[in-house]
């Protein structure tokens, strides 16, 4: 007999229900959106033309491609621009379009010209929106309590900045980009961002431990249930702890190979954290728990 509310699938039983629609491709779209816009923002900050170009391409091909593959009717994708007044999907789409257009104009304007400065600002603002809008998108709906928290956009922003910093270091170390700041500055910034992300993630999970029953069920799945192993190994272990230790004890002194390893570990952790947060999203039972 059911003592507590069960986690149910398609059976005709009332209980917590897993979110199943947003998974691999949406996680990929969020991932590419965050690392691409993060790289673009970092490149604006350190004046890296190549970094900005790669950031734009990651957003266009990675994020845009994943969204198109996911849509049930991709041929109608343009309709997604219709309602930015109320829909975060539409706002994100608009931000992405503005980032693409203004970013391209910025890249091909003469350096130091007015056009270059104006479009850098527009592209920077839109890249910032691209970096955080998926946090607002997840936060905006009350349906899944795990996502319905103001910490979600913050988590997205800091993961975006971390991804951008890591990719910038990768581009520098592999000789694809030259920047106006010292590598050690970026290296230290990465360590600070890794620590910040670790703290934010712990705070986020702690806040869920004191949230509603559905949020607690999501948390149980993440830290003790089906998804605990990938969470501890990929999202937390490889993505944050290993990356932090490698960055702190070896860092850029280890050469291109170490930076490549740190970049790969960071990106793996980044993707899997958001993939797992999507997968453990749980809906509340329609009429709550039945009591005697």
């Amino acid at each position: 007999m059911a003592k507590t509310t069960p986690l149910v699938g398609k059976e005709f039983v009332s209980g917590f229900r897993l979110q199943t629609e947003w998974a691999t491709l949406i996680a990929a779209a969020f991932f590419f959106g965050k690392i691409g816009s993060g790289l673009f923002l970092m490149s604006l900050f350190i004046n890296s033309w190549v970094g900005a170009l790669v950031g734009l391409l990651i957003v266009l091909i990675g994020k845009g491609g994943a969204h198109l593959l996911y849509l049930g009717r991709p041929e109608r994708f343009w309709r997604g621009l219709t309602k930015p007044g109320t829909s975060w999907v539409a706002r994100g789409f608009w931000a992405m379009m503005i980032m693409m257009v203004s970013g391209t104009i910025y890249l091909f304007s003469p350096i130091g010209s007015t056009a270059s400065s104006v479009f850098a600002v527009i592209a920077g603002i839109s890249a910032f929106v691209v970096a955080i809008y998926d946090g607002f998108l997840m936060n905006s709906s009350p349906s899944i309590p795990l996502w319905n928290t103001a910490m979600m956009p913050v988590l997205c922003l800091f993961y975006s900045l971390l991804g951008g910093t890591t990719l910038t270091l990768f581009l520098i170390e592999f000789g694809f980009a030259e920047v106006a700041v010292e590598t050690i500055f970026l290296s230290n910034m990465e360590i600070v961002l890794l620590l910040t992300n670790l703290i934010i993630m712990i705070l986020y999970l702690l806040s869920m431990a004191n949230a509603t029953a559905a949020a607690k069920e999501s948390l149980r799945l993440l830290v003790r249930g089906t998804f605990a192993l990938p969470f501890y190994v990929l999202a937390l272990g490889i993505g944050l702890v290993f990356t932090l230790l490698m960055s702190y004890f070896v860092g850029t002194h280890g050469g291109a190979g170490v930076v490549g390893l740190i970049t790969a570990a960071d990106l793996v952790g980044h993707y899997f954290l958001f993939y797992l947060l999507l997968r453990v999203g749980v809906y509340k039972p329609v009429l709550g728990q039945l009591t005697m």
Partner: peptide
């Protein structure tokens, strides 16, 4: 005719009362 199949509504419905018709 207007739906693009992004499933934002599916995820946003607290009652999970929407269905996506797969290809």
């Amino acid at each position: 005719k207007k739906c693009i199949g992004c499933r934002a509504c599916y995820v946003a419905c607290p009652y999970k009362n929407r269905i996506f018709l797969k290809r």
